[in-house]
Write a protein that binds this DNA or RNA. Sequence first.
DNA 1: CTATACTGTGACTATTATAATAACAGTTAT
DNA 2: ATAACTGTTATTATAATAGTCACAGTATAG
Lengths: 138, 138
Amino acid sequence: MAVNTQFSIAVHLLAGLACQDGQETTSGHLAMSVNTSPSFVRRTLAKLSKAGLVETTTGKSGACRLARKPGRISLLDVYHAVDAPKVFAIHEYAPQKPCVVSCNIKMALEKALAKTQAAMEASLAAITLADIVSDLKK
Amino acid sequence: MAVNTQFSIAVHLLAGLACQDGQETTSGHLAMSVNTSPSFVRRTLAKLSKAGLVETTTGKSGACRLARKPGRISLLDVYHAVDAPKVFAIHEYAPQKPCVVSCNIKMALEKALAKTQAAMEASLAAITLADIVSDLKK
DNA sequence: CTATACTGTGACTATTATAATAACAGTTAT
DNA sequence: ATAACTGTTATTATAATAGTCACAGTATAG
C-alpha cells in the first residue's frame, strides 16, 4: 500500500457507477464492492461530486450516479478531483549561501519536473472511464 | 515534504558533482550543500554508485565523482537508481466474487496506469543532468 | 409532523512510509 | 599504526495516509 490509493479507489467507484447504466446506487452498496466502510466511500464520492463527475441526492432514498457518460470522463478529471499529489516532491532545505547548486537547484528542478508532470497528465487525459469499463467486460 | 524527496536529493547531489568538473568531493562536503548529515548523503550516493552513475573510492582520501558526462545522465537513470516508487499505487482489497467491477478493476487499472508510467518515464529520459546544470548557471 | 434512510463532514485512532541520526565495520593513503 | 573516508545496519522521530466512528443536514414516505 502506498501513496495514491485514493485515486484508484475513485476510479473503482466510478467504474461501479458506470456499470449501473444510469441507475442509482448508495454508498453502502459501493462500499461492498470496494470492500471498505461506507464512510470512506462517501468521502471520496463527495470529492467526485464537487468536481462534477457524479451527481448525488441527499435525504431518504438519496443516491449517486454518473454526471456524464463514461466516455466523457477522463482519468485526468479523476486525478484532479481527488486532489492527488504531484508526481515528484522537491526536498526542503535551507539554501547554503555560497553554494550555487544549493541556491538554484530548486528552481531548476521545478522547471524540469513541470514537464514530467505535464506528460503524465496528458497521458491520463487520453484515457476515459469508458476504456476502463470496456476492459472490465473482457 | 512528501513522497519523493530522495529523487530530488539525488539530482541535487549529482548537480553538485557536475559543478566540480570531474574534481573529487567527499560526502561531508556534499552534505553541506544539501544541508543534511553525511550519513544520509552516503546512503543516497551508494545507490547512485550501484547504478553506475557515480564512481567512489574508499579508504582515506576516498571520494566520489560522476561516472559519465552530465549530458549522458538522464533523470530517468536517476529515477531508476534511487528506486523511486511508481506514480500510482493500486489499492488492495478482497475482490467480492459476484461483482464484475471488484474482480477485474485491478487488471484494468494496471493496464491503464502502465501507459501513464511509461509517458512519465519517457519525459524523464528526455532531460539530462546537463540541462539541469545549465539552468543553475543562469 | 415524525420516523427513516440516505449524504456530507469533522474528529479521532492506527498504521505505514519516510526522514534523519548515530554507530560501526571495511578500506586505503600517509 | 593512524587517520579519513565510504558502505551499511540499526534505531528513532516525524509525517502522510488509511480507516472508523459519530453526528449534523436533508428529503422522502407514511
